[in-house]
Nucleic acid binder design. Sequence first.
DNA 1: TTTAGGGGTTCCAGCCACGGGAAGGTCAAG
DNA 2: CTTGACCTTCCCGTGGCTGGAACCCCTAAA
Lengths: 129, 129
Amino acid sequence: MNIGDVADRTGLPAKTIRYYEDINLIKPLRDSNGYRRFREQDIHKLSFLGRARALGFTIEDCRTLLALYEDETRASSDVKRVAQDHLAQIDAKIADLRAMRDTLSHLVKACAGDDRPDCPILKDLGGNS
Amino acid sequence: MNIGDVADRTGLPAKTIRYYEDINLIKPLRDSNGYRRFREQDIHKLSFLGRARALGFTIEDCRTLLALYEDETRASSDVKRVAQDHLAQIDAKIADLRAMRDTLSHLVKACAGDDRPDCPILKDLGGNS
DNA sequence: TTTAGGGGTTCCAGCCACGGGAAGGTCAAG
DNA sequence: CTTGACCTTCCCGTGGCTGGAACCCCTAAA
């Protein structure tokens, strides 16, 4: 299967697939004309990567997870640790964003949003609390 | 005031301050020895930028906000629009992260985390739902 | 047979908002 | 006079791609 079909099947852009080969996440074969030839296992790995990325795992996490996936003798605790660490990072990000949103939504509510120059948002940013 | 003192006063790294000059957000003066000389207005702008960045505004948003801040004849609606757009982006990000977290926390809970290889996290990533 | 088109390939640059580090100039204290 | 803490510019790297140029390959139609 060529890269375009793989892109269609996995939902990943061809550019991304080439990038994943570049950084050694997948190793498709090559036809005599230089085209990449993808086996089912390559496509399966790419789908795995697509789902892992959709859950927000970094590429390096994906590399680790893929290695664990391929290792029949892994311990599930190793997988769980990676997932838990990532979960903690997500929670931290959510907390950061919520703090921003809270501050920001207060300011937005306090702003008249008319044609007058007076604006509590700018006042706050300017240090006038 | 030199860049180190400004960094101390604003909490921004010197590197960041130089970068902000590079992209024309601030225009400090120069001493005869080539050192940047910061006036109170520069420091004030930098504090403004620090607060805006802390609220997650992009640099381009900051540029816009700073221009509005300096323009006495602005309409508060212009400021509010920028803030509201940003708020919407934050909400979208939070929603994305929450979806990830929900999926991920289910998987983490379902994973035994012991020394056996069986793992629902990998099963899910592998497409076995 | 040529031509058009839709694949594929490589490589290089750019995104965002800086951070690290090299190589060198400047200044105040001891 | 030396030391060490500043300051300067410059260039590279980050993550995870994306866009585009310049080129090759393959098939079908005129």
